[in-house]
Computed example of a mutant assay.
Amino acid sequence: MLQRFFVLLNVSGPQAYGSKEVQKSEWFTRGWTLQELLALSSVEFFSREWEKLGDKRSLIQQVQEVTGIPRLALQGASLSEFSINKRLRWIEHRRTTHPEDKDTKGGLLKDSYRWVLHNDSFRQWHEDPQSRLLWIKGDPGKGKTMLLCGIIDELQVSSVIAKTNTVSYFFCQATDARINSATAVLRGLLYMLVKQQPSLASHVRKRYDAAGKNIFKDANAWIPLVDIFTDVLRDPSLTTTYLIVDALDECVTNLPKLLDFIAKQSSASSCVKWIVSSRNWPEIEGRLEQAGHKVRLSLELNAASVSTAVQDFIDQRVSKLAQRNKYDEPT
């Protein structure tokens, strides 16, 4: 069973055990935490003093009230059981500002990813209109997810400044059936796109009205989702859009279909740019070869930058731990 532990940063002291105090935590308002709340089978909540307050199961009533997420969804029901409109309402009051993203990603340190912003491959992808797909590849432990979190942060900041750009992302996880399939990836990306550009919902509504919610059931969802996504990417009102998928190698269901879709669609629209990451798998490389405007960024070829980034992150975490526990220099 998957487990993930969270500290409710603004809940402290004996009063933390009250349900109303738990509900006041800003953790429930952060955009990043929605995926973790739904995807993980066990979420345990702690006060600032690391006193356990309960878990997703024992506090399900409080969690349901503060998030508006139905009990069945919190208990692991397939998200296809809930309409697109209902799922969009789950994120209406969530914020994804830059400081919050840093908090929920474990205190993301800029020095741990800034090197990539000056990397030739990244700059080619970012600045060249013809370079529409960036594949970041590397062996396990190279920090691919940390790198993508940093890139997402930077793109979100630039999107706020530009006021027209859209950033949509998805993190695959092989051990959770709800986020390890090609269908889940398209659902997740589409979900964020429609939330940020509501006019795109017309493409979803058109097929939903024609066939009902069964069109999005797991067994039959891939084809209509591909059609909807294709229509969205062709929509003339679509603004500059960044689509990011982390850990393609952890997509265990219909990965070839997903790779073929990304390779094809990466050349379909001049206002859409993709970033994907994965391990160095020949299957993934072979499928992505179909893309006409791609750039590779190998972490093995940037070993020095990766090593420095990881060390910076470790040093920062150790420094914070020392400050928190008031260690002296010899310690």
Rank of each mutant, 00 (worst) to 15 (best):
T253Y: 10
A263Y: 01
V295L: 02
A303K: 13
A309F: 01
D231E: 15
V295A: 08
R4W: 15
D231M: 13
I136P: 07
L2F: 09
Y208N: 05
S58W: 04
S319K: 15
D328H: 07
I228D: 14
H118A: 12
A162I: 03
S47V: 02
P224S: 04
N214E: 14
G141I: 08
G76Y: 03
V204W: 14
Q197T: 07
L321D: 09
E283K: 13
Q196A: 06
T96H: 13
G150S: 04
Q323P: 04
D312F: 14
Q124H: 08
E300D: 13
K320F: 05
V232A: 07
V310L: 15
R123A: 03
A174C: 03
T164V: 09
K86M: 08
S112Q: 01
E65P: 00
I275L: 05
T166Y: 10
L133C: 09
I91Y: 00
F229I: 04
D209V: 07
R279Q: 01
T240S: 14
G141R: 14
A182Q: 00
I262K: 11
I161H: 09
W135M: 00
A73H: 04
Y242K: 04
Q15A: 13
F28P: 11
L301D: 15
Q311M: 12
M146E: 03
D120H: 14
N302M: 00
H93E: 06
L79V: 01
S121D: 15
L37R: 03
L88E: 02
I179F: 00
D103R: 11
L299I: 02
R178A: 15
L225F: 10
L200M: 07
S168F: 11
D218A: 08
E283F: 07
A303C: 06
K213H: 08
R234W: 02
K86F: 02
F45S: 01
E65G: 04
W115F: 15
V7Y: 09
G13R: 09
Q15S: 14
K20T: 13
W281R: 13
I262N: 08
N220T: 13
D111Q: 12
Q130W: 11
E154W: 04
D139L: 05
H126L: 15
Q64W: 02
Y169L: 04
P224A: 09
I223V: 14
D249V: 05
